[in-house]
């Protein structure tokens, strides 16, 4: 297994880890959004609460969720390690003037993935504290559907999103995630060596579409709640 650890610590191996964990998180976002959109269903939160109950009780989902936490941490830690390495490689003396030009990417985003990622990491911490942590152990009300007791996450969400501060925080965070995806989506393909004159334009297009649609979908939820209840 020496070869595998050597691979993981090589520059290209580190990048592959970033790419694969990133792609996993990209897929997760779709699932997450699909589930969350049930918040907008007009049934007093029943479908969402049942969904949340299922998600926290299915052994398969549980396993996947641990994988998810691990990947978020791995992606963040590896990203931090790369950022450090890259800063070192850049050298102690910065350019007095530096104009960044790029092809086919937004260099301002691409060169700041570390910082953008840090903001996202903070967002994830807050987000998990607000919902996941409270759901797990915190004080959260319960509702009964057909005789079964289910934690009422819906109400927690609804209450949270009546606070304008939180709504803004979520919307801004979604913009930041959009920026991260704007570069990260196509970048993860490039790192895996998937670059083809015929198909890459499609990947780039899908990446940009994804970076707009998914965060927009997420951002809609707090906005709708705020507008509906305020």
């Amino acid at each position: 297994m020496g070869w595998f650890s050597k691979f993981l610590t090589s520059s290209l191996g580190q990048k592959v880890v970033m790419s694969l964990t990133g792609l996993f998180l990209i897929v997760f976002l779709v699932v997450h959004l699909a589930g969350n959109l049930q918040l907008l269903a007009d049934d007093g939160g029943r479908s969402f609460n049942e969904y949340a109950h299922f998600m926290t009780h299915s052994p398969l989902i549980k396993t996947i969720s641990y994988l998810l936490y691990a990947f978020i941490l791995l992606h963040a830690f590896q990203g931090w390690a790369l950022w450090r390495k890259n800063r070192l490689a850049r050298g102690a003396q910065p350019y007095a003037v530096h104009r960044l030009r790029a092809v086919n990417t937004n260099p301002r985003i691409a060169s700041r993935m570390g910082w953008i990622g840090t903001v996202i990491f903070v967002f994830i911490l807050v987000h998990m504290y607000q919902f996941w942590f409270k759901m797990k152990i915190g004080d959260i009300g319960v509702v009964r559907y057909d005789g079964q007791e289910v934690k009422d996450l819906y109400t927690l969400v609804a209450t949270t999103y009546q606070n304008l501060g939180f709504v803004l925080f979520y919307v801004v965070s979604m913009v930041v995630i959009g920026a991260h995806l704007w570069h990260g989506f196509q970048s993860s393909f490039q790192t895996l060596g998937i670059n083809h004159s015929k198909y890459s334009p499609l990947i780039h297009f899908l990446g940009k579409l994804y970076a707009i649609v998914i965060p927009l979908g997420f951002a809609l939820i707090p906005i709708v709640f705020f507008v509906k209840h305020a």
């Binding site: 520059s11 960044l100 030009r101 092809v103 990417t105 260099p107 691409a110 490039q190 670059n195």
Partner: peptide, 27 residues
């Protein structure tokens, strides 16, 4: 040297215009 984060500034500044598609092939 540092690790590539696919910024593509290299291709933009390369006096011979070498494409980052070669980085993908290396990967």
């Amino acid at each position: 040297f540092g690790r590539c984060s696919n910024v593509t500034a290299c291709e933009a500044e390369c006096p011979k215009g070498i494409s980052v598609s070669h980085i993908a092939r290396m990967n």
